[in-house]
Design a protein around this nucleic acid. Structure first.
Lengths: 341, 341
DNA sequence: TTGAAAGCGCTAACAA
DNA sequence: TTGTTAGCGCTTTCAA
């Protein structure tokens, strides 16, 4: 007697498949599929047998195959400038939690503050056919924007405001932030301003608005210290040094991040500069350090984790074919006043 | 004349497929596939025609389909306890960067410090058939461990050491950290110790080893203040308050994170406790704040981003069928001495 | 409530 | 170097 299995064209991973499980449960594959995905479309008996078969085999459904067949990946792709920058990670954390609870998985990309890298990320993300794409910031026109638009994938831009979003948008106005902080500091009777800002488009916009508002009050010159895209305490310390050598009587500094603001506090301390008497400091982000530093830091609170939660809701809704309203949400911000002003 | 398209069984996403592109380029689908994935297996002429066709159609390959056919997802799944905890995000940042450069995408899950949630994450990750799985910490035995092992997916456990890893392991010894810090502080002639630690298994192990080492020096009692799993400056401040009310003459504190250590520095400052004269403080993680706080913080440096880089290399190698050597890597740590001791 | 058939979009295996 | 064929593991469509 010849061998039973003669010509075998084996492929695949060798893992247990739905067909295997279905066979064991004594049902057709599609019934097995229903038992797993739409349990209420199936008799209790089938359900029981399937459960047993799954248990026995240790079957784990292949979501790539499922995704291919259903054109639904249950993946949301997100891009952040950097993973260590905790401002955005608040957003990512709540986004991820909420997505997971809704049965979605997060694919995370870092642009490392490079537009080119961001384009590459977007292109390779599209290939995964995610059910939604989350972007930090608004995407400027370019190849990536065109491809994204053409892909038909729901998109949510965040952490900014524009009248021409690609699709959905949840954020706040950096322009307003700049203005408000200027007004706030003017009210505090400050007169010699400086700005410490990350090399980042949104931060620049805050700076610009800050200056324009000051100009209205007759203040023309606002020195700016640009630090690398990643804010660090060290950069803040160096920045204060430079600012003071430029203008020793500076009495108010607006930082583009809490971390650099903390650096300024540290440097001020070593120089025995009194805060806020000699120098007022305003941070941005209202991170976990702001309220507990000494002195505590006045900062701009921006609802980072709310952005993530709402974005998750929006993306899930859209992935399920529902509409969301409104498509543009301004979550605003607030200046949390503490000891540094 | 009747309609041309009569019975249509339309499905799919409607997006441009490889077949469309192949048709336009005048080649068979497989040739088109080769042109995209193995350009050197194809004539220059085909390459040119394909490039043009791709350009014209805006074709983006469907990686779900590719993955299904080749049993290679080009996805690496990673689990962290929390996204905002910057200690781990250093690792994730380098992991992600390196993976992306190698053509892999990162799927990120947060366990939120819950073992149950981690199990759920692992199970749903397995369904994605990632080419590798990255874990923060070592996975205790349980359902998830069994399923992971059964899945055959390359696994890398990190940020810890054990003699029984599931597969690969890159980390350092928390036990050694506890010991070393104890020796370090003893050498500084400290006598009244306390520990502030996150509610976290690895931190507890550091504490235990810390105590044992002190016991050898005749020190029996080491008060411990356990804070929530997420370290904050605030928790550090509160902890110092409690410790001092318990034993006002405490002269050395070992913190399970830099952030809580910073909280201690802040609280000490408001109480006019001199650091390091009255109180020595040692942090953990050697984050970006440690060196620039005032006073600068002595901390345990743990090579977080190196873990990520090496993990990426290992995972990619294994995904491509190569072996890695050694499978267990102890990257060690070092105590960076600064002003707080 | 269940099932048969026909793909989803791609690539491995084999052959030319 | 190129093509043919046959799946990968699942779900949609349609029918019973």
């Amino acid at each position: 007697m010849p061998e039973k299995n003669t010509v075998r064209k084996r492929r695949g991973s060798g893992a247990v498949t739905l067909i295997d499980v279905a066979k064991i449960a004594g049902v057709a594959p599609i019934t097995a599929s229903r038992a797993l995905n739409n349990p209420d479309q199936v008799s209790a008996d089938v359900l029981r047998r399937m459960k047993e078969a799954v248990e026995r085999t240790g079957y784990v459904p292949n979501r790539m195959a499922g995704g291919l067949a259903s054109s639904k990946s249950k993946i949301i792709a997100a891009i952040v400038p950097s993973a260590v920058s905790s401002v955005f990670m608040d957003t990512i954390e709540s986004l991820n939690s909420n997505l997971f609870d809704a049965g979605y998985q997060l694919m995370l990309g870092q642009s490392d503050y490079s537009a080119e890298r961001q384009e590459m990320l977007i292109e390779s993300f599209i290939g995964r056919r995610p059910d939604g794409i989350f972007l930090t910031g608004v995407l400027p026109s370019g190849k990536a924007r065109t491809k994204l638009l053409a892909s038909g994938i729901p998109i949510i831009e965040t952490w900014d405001l524009t009248v021409t979003p690609m699709d959905m948008l949840i954020g706040f106005s950096h322009l307003e932030v700049g203005r408000s902080v200027a007004q706030f500091l003017l009210q505090k009777k400050r007169t010699k301003f400086a700005v410490v800002t990350a090399n980042d488009e949104r931060a620049s916009r805050r700076y610009k608005a800050f200056c324009e508002e000051l100009k209205k009050a007759g203040i023309k010159h606002v020195p700016i210290e640009v630090i690398g895209p990643k804010s660090t305490m060290h950069a803040g310390r160096v920045a204060l040094d430079k600012i003071l050598s430029l203008r020793p009587d500076t009495d108010a500094i607006f930082c583009s991040s809490d971390v650099s603001a903390l650096g300024i506090l540290a440097e001020a301390r070593t120089r025995c500069i009194r805060i806020p008497q000699d120098l007022a400091v305003v941070g941005f982000g209202d991170g976990p350090y702001a309220s507990d530093s000494v002195p505590s830091l006045t900062s701009v609170r921006v609802h980072g984790s709310e952005i993530g939660t709402l974005a998750a809701q929006y993306l899930v809704k859209r992935a399920q074919g529902e509409e969301v309203n409104p498509r543009i949400v301004d979550l605003g911000f607030s200046i949390i006043e503490r000891e540094t002003t």
